[in-house]
Amino acid sequence: MANQRVNTPFDARSTAAEVVSGVDLSGRRAVVTGAAGGIGVETARALARAGAEVTIAVRNIEAGQRVADELAAGAGRVTAASLDLADLDSVRAFVRGWQGPLHILINNAGVMAPPLTRTRQGWELQFATNHLGHFALATGLHDALATAGDARVVALSSRGHLTAPVDFDDINFERRPYDPWVAYGQSKTANVLFAVEADRRWAGEGIRANAVHPGAILDSNLTRYMSQEDVEAAALSGEEFKSPEQGAATSVLVATWPGLAGVGGRYFEDCDEASLNQPGTNRGVAAYALDPEAAEQLWRASLDLLGEA
């Protein structure tokens, strides 16, 4: 499949339950970040019903425990653990607490278009949460993923990545004016670049990484910083919106579908590998998000930022 674009039997209308139907995940362990609501819940539910032991890693542990209890009642082994991706101490504590192999890591959590906010380290919140926190988590769990021998990492990006590449000269908006949507786009490009470089570095250890665009889902905590006018404009834009069950489908597909064994470093949307974006359209993946040189540069920059912290 080196040069062949992947197509699957599923599409934009497919649900997470449909794409994992017939897949046995017994004995496999999964972590899903941000699974206290929205598509994260449906992602965890589908994995658990297929037999996986699922840990939902959440900032609000009380909400996460309620979700874990609900899912465990109907779908097997689901536990909640505390994880604040904007707090490196929290990420490190989660990593220290993990024991044994990890077969599936789904970097689902995210924040979208808040007012300019900085973490304790001075990092812009969207880049810190959407990329750096997940980068620290994945690299911290590398040995657990390698121990699994057949692990998959899924980075949730967004069509928003088409808004902006990573500005390596001013990642944290210290000199350029802050635009919440440019910052969001940059962080979502970083998610794709992470998958490209993680796959290059780790494929030989049996760890494959891919990025996904889940689709537009208005029933999501991700929209909490959007004004009512923004929400209404999105609803009138002609965008086809998905239910949370449909929004979780591409993540679950990339994490579990047997036909994707050995596939990595790619970007999927609507349950298929995306083609390159064409100017004037809002589909596909930007060439800059798949650029191997930018992917390696981001990896080095991320290590530097974490090292400084």
Rank of each mutant, 00 (worst) to 15 (best):
L162Q: 03
L162G: 01
T163A: 13
T163H: 14
A164T: 15
V166S: 06
D167F: 09
D167M: 08
F168Q: 14
F168V: 11
D169C: 09
D169P: 14
D170A: 03
I171N: 00
I171T: 09
I171G: 01
I171L: 07
N172C: 11
N172A: 14
F173I: 01
F173P: 04
F173S: 01
F173R: 00
E174R: 15
R175E: 13
R176Y: 10
R176V: 15
P177W: 05
Y178T: 09
D179L: 05
D179C: 04
D179R: 04
D179H: 12
D179A: 09
W181G: 00
W181M: 13
V182A: 12
V182N: 10
Q186E: 15
S187W: 05
K188C: 11
T189C: 09
T189Q: 07
T189S: 13
A190W: 01
N191C: 13
N191M: 13
F194H: 07
V196T: 08
E197Q: 12
E197M: 10
E197R: 06
A198E: 06
R200L: 08
R201K: 11
R201N: 02
A203D: 03
A203E: 02
G204V: 07
G206H: 04
G206C: 05
G206P: 00
I207L: 09
I207K: 01
I207Y: 02
R208L: 14
R208H: 14
A211S: 13
A211G: 09
A211Q: 05
A211W: 05
A211I: 05
V212F: 09
V212Y: 01
H213G: 01
H213L: 08
H213C: 08
P214N: 05
P214S: 08
G215R: 02
G215E: 00
G215T: 03
A216P: 11
I217V: 15
I217Y: 01
D219P: 10
D219Y: 03
D219M: 12
S220P: 06
N221V: 01
N221M: 09
L222D: 03
L222Y: 04
L222E: 01
T223D: 09
T223A: 13
R224E: 00
R224Y: 02
R224H: 08
Y225T: 12
Y225R: 13
M226F: 01
M226H: 12
M226T: 11
S227P: 04
S227R: 01
Q228G: 13
Q228T: 14
E229C: 10
D230F: 00
D230H: 12
D230V: 06
D230S: 15
A233P: 06
A233F: 04
A233S: 13
A233Q: 11
A235G: 15
L236I: 10
S237G: 09
E239L: 12
E239G: 02
E240Q: 12
F241C: 00
F241W: 04
K242Y: 03
S243F: 06
